[in-house]
């Protein structure tokens, strides 16, 4: 039995300890906002926060998350539904096209801004390694700058 927290709720998992967190979230907890894209930790569609840091759920085994606190895209807004400034910036810049990768992009962007509140274009390009097949990179970059401004103002 492996126990951990997802979006502040305690969960336990009694299946194969090698099961990637991705499939526990999706098939067992029905948290489908975390997406399957590659299964090899390359594309970032499955990005979640494990103890506050962006991590790829498809290569994080169940055994590795015991006792950890996990946040998924569903848990990023406040319990009252107030969006995280990064989510709001994604809306304000009208970022998504198909939308499939955007949950992972947002989780990566939140981590980036937590560690670097005022990133340059180069910082963004080097840290934002998630793939967007639709090519929304221009708007992602703008949305990160916008969120950076909002978060530094503390609004």
């Amino acid at each position: 039995m492996i126990e951990f927290h997802v979006n502040n709720e305690p969960v336990s998992f009694s299946g194969d300890e090698d099961t990637p967190l991705l499939w526990i979230l999706r098939d067992h907890l029905r948290l489908t906002g975390t997406k399957f894209g590659c299964g090899i930790g390359s594309c970032g569609a499955c990005m979640v926060h494990i103890d506050g840091r962006a991590s790829k759920a498809c290569t994080s085994k169940a055994s590795s998350v015991a006792g950890k606190r996990i946040t998924t895209i569903e848990g990023l807004a406040s319990p009252r539904g107030e969006l995280h400034p990064v989510q709001q910036a994604w809306i304000d810049e009208d970022v998504p096209q198909c939308g499939y990768c955007q949950g992972g992009q947002i989780m990566a962007a939140v981590d980036l801004l937590n560690s670097n509140p005022e990133p340059s274009d180069e910082d963004i390009a080097s840290k934002m390694r998630n793939i967007c097949r639709c090519g929304t990179y221009v708007r992602i970059r703008k949305a990160i700058h916008r969120a950076s401004t909002t978060m530094r103002k503390g609004t």
Binding site: L31, E74, L83, W90, I91, D94, P96, G99, Q102, G103
Partner: peptide, 11 residues
């Protein structure tokens, strides 16, 4: 803007 955008950014 994309009509489904709030659902997209909240998963």
């Amino acid at each position: 803007g994309v009509v489904d955008i709030r659902d997209i950014v909240t998963g």
